[in-house]
Design a protein around this nucleic acid. Structure first.
Lengths: 117, 117
DNA sequence: TGGATGTGCAACCCCAGAATTGCACGTCCA
DNA sequence: TGGACGTGCAATTCTGGGGTTGCACATCCA
């Protein structure tokens, strides 16, 4: 986690970087399927060490994609949809913007073609 | 480009990896703003070499985010919204799925609490 | 034709980050 | 209380990818 308050929607950048790694996406899948899980439990279901899982969870936490809470001697993590949803909206908006621009350029090109046939 | 046909929507993985790099996102912004551009032109607007831009464009092309066409001695690239849009939908679906699961888990937890008050 | 301009290819450097190992510290419970 | 279990921290290794340089090849145009 960075210095931002817990619960804030992290930047799009950190979410994209977090999602770019296949092991982290697998972790998210496992967490989504099980609701809650510890780093030790998750490591047993993956071909990596617990320490690797811990580091990945830290990245996911910094991106706001998961959050962990201590229960006794163990730390249970769960998935947080908000950051993912925000990034999805960002991407959809970007795609729409590209579409707009492309349509505009096409329109201008056709107008120019009419002027010089 | 890989061996997939031009125009195919590449896998979500390649799109996420492509978008994870800030320089590549900048390239996409420039391309979207200018409609069409060559690697040489783009390199002049960024603090990196043309070769670096070429490699980034190759990654973006493999992800289906841009496409390049030869015009005389130059290669002009343009943005392709389809892959981005598809990935946005994938993310939105995933976020919805997480929401569903979390709601379900909460429901079960409350039911269990009612049984043992 | 020859120079200017734009691409393509190959070798190389460098470092962030993915992963491991080893050990110390806190927590539960028989 | 002591052992088992879970976590935290630090040092280390090593590969992939971002970036560069240098040169060869293709294309335009005066």
């Amino acid at each position: 986690m960075t210095d931002e308050r817990r619960g804030d929607v992290a930047s799009v950048d950190s979410v994209l970087v977090a999602l770019a790694d296949p092991t982290r996406r697998q972790l998210l899948d496992l967490l989504a399927a099980q609701g809650e899980a510890t780093a030790t439990t998750l490591a047993e279901q993956l071909p990596v060490t617990r320490q690797a899982v811990v580091k990945h969870l830290a990245v996911l936490d910094a991106a706001g994609l998961v959050s962990g809470g201590r229960v006794g001697r163990e730390v249970r993590y769960a998935v947080r949809p908000a950051a993912l949803d925000a990034t999805a909206r960002w991407m959809a908006g970007l795609a729409a913007d590209w579409d707009r621009r492309l349509a505009n350029i096409k329109r201008i090109a056709e107008a120019a073609e009419r002027d010089t046939p």
